[in-house]
């Protein structure tokens, strides 16, 4: 097979069809940028989770005096009840919980005073206003539901709280943004497939005479179709490279140069993450082109 000849056909096809090829490049560019943005958002979320989930614990708040929870009918949690709960954690939750410590009311008050040395909003609190709790460090933060199921409803336990819940609104927002980007990407990808299909069809029609002669003199199917395949693939890959480049610039200038300086206590996605996503975009572009070609070519360049 003469590679040079095929390449020549590809470039003459691209030249003849410039406007359509540009359209394909732009549409794949935009659609894959959305795909990449969705991927980077997810990368950002997992980065934040890695960072923050290590800092948070599950708090098992023990019954204070005067609680109305049904498990607190016996008044303030007794030492026996606390021991029973610890026993359960040690036996039933050995896999999920990696560390347990008890925070007494006094310790809670100390921590509170440290954070609010002048009292909280003008009130004067004492250690008795605090609530004792068991602090659990989970080996896997995702296991909260299991822990909560086991411990809730035990005598002396008022409520089991996951400090992760604090981050939920933020993560939910990011997830919604991901969905939005992915949805837009889906629509744009559909447009890209249709456009590539049309481009290949136009190219095939404009070269009908050539393909007719090629068929008659016994050129193989692959040889006839390869230029069209490569044309579509080349345009799509070019679009994906632009998308990768665009994302890289966005992360470089908007995240690394600006966000990281203004809000510096958060771990952000970096150019490395873009480099990790970019190959996937190229693969997607090739898949897109292959899919479109598959639908078109057998109809227009049949032997």
């Amino acid at each position: 097979m003469r590679f040079q000849f095929v390449l020549g056909e590809v470039f003459s096809g691209l030249r003849r069809n410039t406007t359509m090829v540009v359209a394909v490049v732009l549409v794949t560019f935009v659609s894959l940028t959305f795909v990449g943005a969705a991927a980077l958002l997810q990368a950002q979320i997992s980065k934040l989770k890695d960072d923050w989930y290590d800092l948070v614990e599950v708090s098992v708040f023990l019954c204070p005096e005067g609680s109305v929870a049904p498990t607190c009918a016996g008044g303030e949690a007794t030492d026996a009840q606390v021991d029973a709960v610890r026993q359960i954690i040690d036996t039933e939750l050995t896999d999920e919980v990696s560390k347990v410590y008890f925070e007494s009311k006094e310790q809670a008050f100390e921590a509170f005073s440290e954070r609010y040395p002048d009292g909280y909003q003008g009130t004067q609190l004492t250690a008795d206003d605090m609530q004792a709790s068991l602090r659990l460090k989970l080996s896997d933060a995702e296991q909260f539901a299991v822990v909560s199921d086991v411990l809730s409803g035990r005598d002396g336990v008022e409520i089991v709280e996951d400090q992760r819940a604090v981050f939920e609104p933020l993560f939910r927002t990011l997830n919604v943004a991901t969905l939005l980007a992915a949805g837009l990407a889906g629509v744009m990808l559909l447009a890209a497939v249709l456009l590539i299909t049309t481009t290949i069809r136009l190219s095939a029609v404009s070269r009908r005479k050539e393909t007719e002669i090629m068929r008659l003199v016994g050129a193989s199917n692959l040889f006839i179709q390869l230029p069209f395949l490569l044309e579509g693939a080349l345009a799509a890959v070019l679009g994906s490279l632009l998308a990768g480049g665009g994302l890289w610039l966005a992360v470089r200038f908007m995240v690394s140069d600006w966000l990281e300086r203004s809000v510096d206590w958060v771990a952000y996605v970096s150019e490395v993450d873009v480099l990790r996503v970019a190959p996937l975009l190229v693969i997607m572009a090739v898949a897109l082109a292959a899919l479109s070609s598959f639908f078109t070519l057998n109809r227009y360049t049949r032997i």
Partner: peptide, 19 residues
């Protein structure tokens, strides 16, 4: 279908409209 090209390489065709 994939052997059709081999067949056609043994055939030559000429048309009224030259093509």
């Amino acid at each position: 279908a994939w052997r059709v090209p081999t067949l056609r390489r043994q055939l030559g065709v000429v048309f009224q409209d030259f093509r």
